[in-house]
Write a protein that binds this DNA or RNA. Structure first.
Lengths: 233, 233
DNA sequence: GGGAATAAAAAGTCAGACTTATATGTCACA
DNA sequence: TGTGACATATAAGTCTGACTTTTTATTCCC
């Protein structure tokens, strides 16, 4: 699901990456490649590759005669899916979920507006299908089924926008929605109002009503913000 | 400015990365580490580190017995600043600028709204200073000076939003604005209306008027969309 | 006390040998 | 003729050890 997995290199990364993003090493901390290689019982070659990847994510900086310096959070490539997963798996998951939900609230309405103008008939059909799936799982504690269709729905919207930057946020939205179902306070069935909004949104896109699609999505994301107690203007 | 620079490893990356993002190798193409090492006249160790980094950007996938496979565009980490720079330097720069400008139009209004509620007095002061700088350079073909303050202005807005995801887009916005000045059709002095909007936006933030800040920013980004002939709803 | 020469430390680079996974081709058998 | 098991070749993956280069810190001389 989350892991780079394959290879010795990936396993080291899956340990060291989360440690760094969790803040185990305060910014400015210096790690030595040799020591790390010893700690993980791998060769220096493998360790160097790991450091290179962490460096490309701007989590660390490698300098001669100094070592591998941990960079402050503001330098990190916070849009890297791997970094997002690591942080969501760590201690500041709530904080991370807030940031991402605010991001959603900015992106999705615009994406929905574009989707209303660019969606193919197939995508419109998918959308209605997802909305129906949400309705079908809206009651009776079928949270997993609801989540599945919810994620699919938002993925289609983002993809149908025709903007690759939006489309790439599908995984992020999936993580946020999944996090809400699995970790946050969502014991009860989903809000019926939200379900209705999704059905209406599918309609609006099908009818190429960009303005309505945008407005409906704004209502959906505002609901998400309220769930996390993020004050809306 | 753009380069990873330091080290042999970085120089190879700065050649191979742009080649891939430019589409020189169609998706599914297979590269061999040994051949690449020969081509760039570096050791396999260095070449492997390069491949690992490209893999972490999801530009390629390395598999045993197969080689290094180039992935389709939809897999790329398009938010990676390095990838963005490579693509902006390549042939599909116009397309890329459009995607990013649409992204701006989604993010910045929301960021401005948040900035109006969270900006520190220092940030408010910076904002007015930047706006004044824009006014001062608005006429007389002082495009560079104007750009400088424009970039600084938007950076402050994004940072002041208090959302790290937004703050991290400062570099992207800088690239877009800089691209407009240097490559696009901007021979003449900037639009006076845009200058006024920035001044008013600085005001709105200072006066904590979130709704007005958001609306003004929406007008600013709509202007940016129109410049690129992206139809607004 | 300040600046140049010196030493040390850690990353960077390379070459070669070896391991492992896996795609593909071969062959026997049904 | 098709199918499964087996063998083989291939390219990435890993390890080791020696060497280079850059940069920081120390020392020493003026």
């Amino acid at each position: 699901m989350s892991t780079t997995g394959r290879g010795l290199h990936g396993r080291v990364l899956d340990t060291l990456g989360p440690e760094i993003t969790a803040g185990d090493y305060p910014p400015g901390s210096v790690l030595r490649t040799d020591e790390l290689a010893q700690r993980f019982d791998v060769s220096r070659s493998v360790m160097r590759e790991v450091v290179r990847v962490l460096e490309s994510m701007h989590l660390v900086q490698s300098r001669r005669r100094v070592g591998v310096t941990v960079l402050p959070t503001c330098e990190w490539n916070v849009y890297d899916p791997q970094v997002i997963r690591w942080r969501l798996a760590g201690a500041d998951r709530p904080r991370q979920l807030r940031s991402l939900t605010v991001l959603r609230s900015a992106i999705e309405p615009v994406a929905a507006g574009l989707a209303a103008r660019h969606a193919t008939p197939e995508q419109c059909a998918e959308l209605t299908e997802c909305a129906l799936g949400m309705v079908a799982n809206a009651s009776g504690h079928r949270l997993e089924g609801y989540l599945f269709h919810d994620v699919a729905f938002h993925r289609v919207i983002l993809t149908a926008s025709g903007n690759e930057m939006f489309a790439r946020l599908g995984d992020v939205v999936a993580e946020v929605l999944s996090g809400r179902t699995h970790h946050a306070v969502m014991f009860e069935d989903p809000d019926p109002a939200a379900v209705t909004l999704h059905v209406q949104l599918a309609e609006a896109v099908r009818e190429r009503d960009a303005a309505r699609a945008e407005k409906l999505t704004r209502e959906i994301t505002e609901g998400a913000l309220q769930e996390l107690d993020i004050l809306a203007p």
